[in-house]
Design a protein around this nucleic acid. Structure first.
Lengths: 235, 235
DNA sequence: ATCGGAACGGAACGTCCGTTCCGATTCAGA
DNA sequence: TCTGAATCGGAACGGACGTTCCGTTCCGAT
């Protein structure tokens, strides 16, 4: 979707505040929603961003739309990272998100798929409510669908590499990675650092289990499908 | 807390409906809260129980109190099961909850602690919101505290037995079992059976990881403490 | 210096939900 | 059969939150 007007910051007047507000809103939303869960109030997000509620609604028609935007950026960042870890970036993708090189160090010789997923979660900054699928009804904007597909491709590459290295058992798929992430998540009521430390502790167990299954030649029976994540269940 | 009046169903007149309503409310609450999460409405619970909202409030002063009651029964059932699996029941404890013998079969030679915990969760029937600790402020009624302590004792026995059998690594504690349960939980938005199947799939990974750590002689560094679960964090 | 419009912040509105209140219903005892 | 107490279900209340509306502020242009 190309912008017909000139895009090289042509009107830096009042619109610059708009842009910076936009960024502040996104950051605040990520922060507040990740700390307090999905029922944090819009007023709280606005206050955190140093902005009135109206400034949020001017850009996002609804709270769900704001969460959607966070989902898209989170999933895109995860996809970029997955591709990067897998060995080569996709085409002209943006720069890799910052601050993730150190975290991966202490996970040892774990399967890259799981590691990358954990890092992806770190990147999103808002693990619980945001990596979770939207409500039952009408899900998946085209943007989110595209990001999701890109992530799928990246994870497939990662898992394939891990399979070749004998780090994950046969039958373990990219969809498994997503569902494992959905099932193993930091406990909300605790302070962030504490919850993350424990999260890492137990994720390590799962990765060891994977590697052991691979060594034992286990063949997993049919697991989840990719579109079950973010999929519409229609009950 | 002994009841001074006669307790052997002395007034079966209108009060029988009260008793059965009470049971229906508890069952409905467990069902609805487990399916829809903590923000299911009281009206929905009442409707599910075939009862007016007032009949709930007549017995539980607040929604939180109702959830508390579910927590107590859930934790007590888990404690009873843990003691049973560990080899002998506590004193005059009630009968073991039904319908759990079959589920344990397909987990193979997994550590009993994790298996029992999973079963405990099955028993509670309301995994997510109910095993989670209450809000930050004033937690832990004495009843819940007692049930929690009983569960702690049971899990300690289980974990000790598993340690002796070389199924869990050194440094893995009863508190670890609880926190692992808190971190690895069924994904809500999916149909129950599906979410449970995946939950079991990934729990199996963690248990394999535990066993492997034990075989490798891994010594875990300091993990969680028991009273961090249900503990008041005071931020 | 003044004007127009874009963007702002916060007050106002409607809805939903937890909780309370009240008239109707049922049952034990006379 | 009648009375009264206990219990019931659902309507009414109050507050919180998502969303909308409006008067104000700021910036570029005339």
């Amino acid at each position: 979707m190309p912008d017909p007007s000139a895009d090289e910051r042509p009107l830096p007047g009042r619109q610059r505040e708009a842009r910076s507000n936009d960024a502040a809103v996104l950051a605040a939303a990520r922060e507040v929603l990740s700390a307090q869960g999905h029922d944090a109030s819009m007023a709280e997000i606005a206050r955190h961003a140093g902005v009135g509620v109206a400034s949020i609604y001017r850009r996002y028609p609804t709270k769900e739309a704001l969460v959607e935007a966070l989902r898209v950026t989170g999933v895109s960042a995860a996809a970029a990272l997955a591709h990067e870890v897998a060995g080569s970036m996709p085409d002209g993708a943006g720069a890799a998100p910052d601050g993730h090189a150190d975290d991966g160090a202490d996970t040892g010789a774990a399967p890259a798929g799981a590691v990358a997923s954990f890092l992806a979660r770190q990147i999103t900054g808002a693990p619980g409510p945001i990596l979770q699928p939207p409500g039952r009804g009408a899900p998946i904007s085209s943007e989110l669908g595209a990001a999701s597909e890109e992530l799928h491709a990246g994870l497939r590459r990662l898992v394939a590499r891990d399979r070749a290295d004998g780090l994950v058992p046969e039958g373990f798929t990219a969809a498994d990675v997503m569902q494992l992430l959905l099932h193993l998540r930091p406990a909300l009521p605790y302070p962030r650092a504490h919850a993350d430390a424990l999260h890492l502790r137990y994720l390590d167990l799962a990765m060891r289990g994977l590697a052991e299954q691979a060594r034992d030649g286990v063949v997993l029976d049919d697991g989840p499908h990719w579109d079950e994540w973010m999929g519409s269940w229609h009950d």
